[in-house]
Simulated scan of single mutants.
Amino acid sequence: MVANRYYSGPVSDHFDGTRFFNPGGIEPLGLLEVLRWRWSGGRSVWPKTIENAGRTSVPAARVEDLRVTMVGHATLLVQVAGVNILTDPVWSERVSPVSFAGPKRVRAPGIAFDALPRIDLVLLSHNHYDHLDIRTLRRLKEAYDPLVVTPLGNDRILSDAGLGMRVMVADWGDRVETPFGIVHCEPAHHWSARGTRDRRMALWASFVLETEVGRIYHIGDTGFHDGINYRAAGEKHGGFRLAILPIGAYAPRWFMKGQHQNPDEAVRGMVLAGAEFAVGHHWSTFQLTDEAIDEPAEQLAQALRDHGVSADRFRPLLAGEAWDVPAAVR
């Protein structure tokens, strides 16, 4: 029997004693399907580098209401009610087990690392290299010693790397009381792996933040999963001022559907969860899949029209762009 190197705990509706899974969901496809995709020839050509066109941001030290600044991919600075939060922080040039190969950044980070305000809290959604970057986490530990909230098993990855970070670990459905507010750990439809022998041994998750200025729903990665998790989050938490949702890395659909939603599904998820506003991320930084670099924003604009949602409610931020999120109308 294969041993889980990251987590040991009781069997549950999403853990079989060795591996985590999505109840009633889609398992990640195997090597033959990966090769079929890679050999299909449908990959768009991205530019090697894109200038941020003067958008590199120097954030305020603190924000009393709610401001979101895009760093790149799934890394966002969320400044809310005087607290500074980073999601899935990656400042490295590549998202890979090694520094000399793997997907390479085409846009510089929208905030220079040295321009960051003091970081209080880091949300780590799962352990894929484009979300959990040891090099960046080590820099954050040395600079700010932030608290990390992450799903089951990911604490072991940080510990094995010798980071010495302060970590709070959560299962789906857990309510985590931090010095910076309450964080709920909720389901997402995804998977995890750092290598070829640890698939689904650490949990993946979304987060709900309770703040003085409204609830925030953050998803690092997810498949749409018939909207099940969106409906549940909206019903449990009563809607959101802001949802931070992935909109990229979705093509081809036959391969990516179970792990990455497309822009249309992101809009549908926003509506199902009862979010007043949304930020689109996970696009235009690292080429992971087949779609063109600008396609997610174009598809998002079309999806908003199709679903009758105003374009000013769901913004696909580029590196360096900051948005002062309006107050919820409800």
Rank of each mutant, 00 (worst) to 15 (best):
R105Q: 05
V329M: 11
L76Q: 14
R215L: 01
W191S: 12
F314H: 05
D120T: 00
P187Q: 04
A301W: 00
A278Y: 01
G17S: 03
L152S: 12
E276Y: 12
D16G: 09
A170Q: 00
A81L: 09
W172C: 00
A161C: 08
L121Y: 02
D114N: 12
S310F: 11
R313V: 00
R253K: 13
W191I: 01
T75C: 15
A297P: 02
P10C: 05
F286I: 07
V68H: 09
K257S: 12
G239T: 04
A278D: 04
H281G: 00
P316E: 01
G308N: 06
N229K: 08
F180I: 00
S57A: 15
N22V: 15
M1E: 11
A327I: 10
S8T: 13
E186R: 12
S44K: 09
V98M: 13
G30F: 09
R330S: 06
L76N: 13
V167M: 03
A81R: 11
F180E: 01
N22E: 01
S96V: 09
F314Q: 06
G238A: 09
M70A: 15
R330L: 14
D306T: 00
Y217D: 06
M1T: 11
I293Y: 07
E235I: 04
E177R: 07
E321Q: 13
T222V: 13
D221N: 15
P47D: 08
S206P: 03
L152W: 08
R156Q: 15
I119L: 08
D65W: 12
N154I: 15
T75Y: 01
Q287I: 04
H184Y: 14
L288A: 13
V208T: 07
A205L: 07
M165W: 10
I157K: 01
A328M: 00
D88G: 10
F15S: 03
A319D: 08
L76S: 06
W37S: 14
H73V: 03
W204R: 05
G110N: 01
D290V: 10
A53M: 10
Y250V: 05
G274Y: 07
T196D: 11
Q259M: 14
G269L: 01
F20M: 04
E27W: 07
H237Q: 11
L318F: 09
